[in-house]
Nucleic acid binder design. Structure first.
Lengths: 338, 338
DNA sequence: AAAAGCTGTCGAAGCGCTTCGATGAACTCT
DNA sequence: AGAGTTCATCGAAGCGCTTCGACAGCTTTT
């Protein structure tokens, strides 16, 4: 391995000069700088990460804790992870991938060992065990998701409350008076990840404001479970003409079922999905949907973190405004319904 | 931050003794060991990663290069990534997430800086630019996927050739004489990632051996593209009764289309998918499928890497034998067909 | 009973870098 | 012209750890 000292010797300067060329923390004459840069290139020098971290107590690494679970929103998680990695790289950081498996211990380990300079936590629960640790350290962190108490924390998330409201609004505007929500799996609600509840909250309160009826049913996803859920809903509220689906793996089954039952989308029933763009576009009916802005969330998270690391940051909750894209799955409520 | 020296002082021993307790590289008396361990616990000591890396020239980090693209097999990628992270952790390693974006430079950077001790590359192309670099360094690496020339490399992958053969075999055994393959997007074939070609290869050669007719068509996936592809196939070979689908995003559209055309699965046509288990199980018809063993691939990759890092490894190509699980989408060919 | 071998521990060197204070050279000001 | 500035560079200390050789106190061998 080529070392700083070798570069220095090759360029005929001292080691510290090379270091300053690299960091730009002191001014260096143009000629010297160029000579050093030339040597670096010729020798193929790469600073040793460990030495650098030791000397500067900065690892230039951001830890990303992803949920271990692969039962939901996997593409979203992946997209976030990739956005995080890409954005981080643009700011000179690398990304360390931690799984939720270790739980709070991972936070301790990373914080204590100086492995990473900062961390991003995904899949934050309302009352997450890791939060006290984060508050108790001066290592910057950003959460993707919203815990119950956000004091002293920085969070990025889609505004799910507004998302729910937006979905209802759209359907109500089209004349639908009876709306059903196919929700996430019951486990998701029990886990208290927050986003599902917040969506529901937005759905309900806007429904009330607009005077439309709303029925919510959790749903495991997959064909069979969706069939059961749908049957129950139609049994209970046969006049339902509007659906909001917030469960990726219920989307396609749902469309298949409706087709099978001879209910045309969007002529007889309208469907709004809360899902990644790709799912909405690739579905058998191009879906009117509110996208889950995975990339944006990942990017924001990193940018807030970098700001904090540069001493510019503030604790803050950033809710990304939802955007509803109208595609082919929603239309005016059939006349005479309800 | 608590340092080794502080622990040493607290326990009344020298720093090196603490280090040996931690690493176990020299024998330490039980009493001393316990005293030191006690101090470590009391002080909440975590070794500094940078210092450790510098002194030992081992970072205990494995780099994982994932494709930047999120257009295909995302859940598979994610599952592999998580399996890698989990397995690595069990061996005392952390995982650094690199995106394909940087390309070969990432390999240089990581190798040169000692950021990671080893790397795992996903989504390897037949003639990948990164391969020469890997061969030219003594840093251990494992590829997930199979390049054209595997000399001097360690690779882990599903045996896609055998997978193709297995699918044809299964259908042929059930009496299907006209089989169509809905393949990956044309871009996948053009990219020369190998796995698609290898599957096709297996499909074709076994088809020939068994004397069944095989028609292969790439397919973009999504509802519309699948509809077009299916129509073409049925136009060209109306007697087709067996389908092999190797494109996650064509699976569900395919089933919907068949249903719509009044072709019952599995009574009229049989469908075998090559896809992650979850997709096969959650589809609207429980699919007979060959699973893509993501977890296994991730786990193997790490285990081979760790073996290499411990000096036990050998270069080797590990092809995981495919397993076909019969579910509800395949059955005997309808009599009188073909 | 002396030589040889273990065990358990310590001290010190050094890993490759950053960073602080110092220093000389070249300028600027009065 | 001498004092004060600024600029570019150097040398040395030190980050927290690992690891090597040394050594004291044992036990075993011859």
């Amino acid at each position: 391995m080529v070392t700083l000292a070798e570069v220095a010797q090759h360029a005929g300067v001292s080691a510290s000069t090379v270091s300053y060329v690299l960091s730009g923390k002191r001014s260096i004459s143009t000629t010297t700088r160029q000579r050093v840069e030339q040597s670096i290139r010729e020798l193929g020098y790469h600073p040793n990460a460990g030495a650098r971290a030791l000397a500067s107590s900065r690892s230039n690494i951001i830890a990303l804790m992803v949920p271990l679970r692969t039962d939901m929103y996997v593409p979203v998680m992946m997209e976030i992870a990739i956005a995080v990695a890409t954005t981080a790289r643009n700011h000179g950081y690398d990304v360390l991938l931690l799984t939720g498996e270790e739980g709070p211990d991972a936070v301790r380990r990373v914080t204590g060992s100086g492995l990473a300079d900062a961390m991003i936590l995904m899949d934050v629960e309302l009352d997450d065990e890791r939060l006290p640790l984060l508050r108790g350290t001066d290592q910057p962190s950003v959460l993707i998701g919203l815990p119950a108490d956000t004091s002293g924390l920085t969070c990025v998330d889609l505004d799910f409350r507004a998302t729910g409201a937006l979905c209802v609004e759209h359907l109500a505007m089209l004349g639908h008076r009876d709306i059903a929500v196919i929700g996430e799996a019951p486990a998701v609600y029990e886990r208290h990840t927050g986003f599902a509840e917040r969506t529901l909250d937005g759905l309900r309160s806007r429904a009330q404001e607009l005077g439309v009826r709303l029925l919510h049913r959790p749903c495991e996803g997959g064909y069979d479970a969706t069939a059961v859920t749908l049957a129950r809903i139609l049994d209970e509220r046969p006049g339902t003409t509007g659906f909001v689906v917030q469960n990726e793996s219920a989307v396609e089954p749902m469309l298949a079922l409706l087709r099978q039952q001879g209910r045309a989308v969007p002529e007889d029933v309208s469907v709004v999905a809360v899902c990644p763009e790709q799912v909405a576009v690739q579905a058998s009916v191009r879906l009117t949907s509110v996208a889950i802005p995975a990339q944006e969330m990942g990017r924001y998270a990193v940018e807030y973190l970098v700001a904090k690391l540069d001493g510019r940051g503030t604790d803050d909750v950033v809710l990304i405004a939802p955007e509803l894209t109208v595609r082919a799955s929603t239309g005016p409520a059939p006349s005479g319904s309800s």
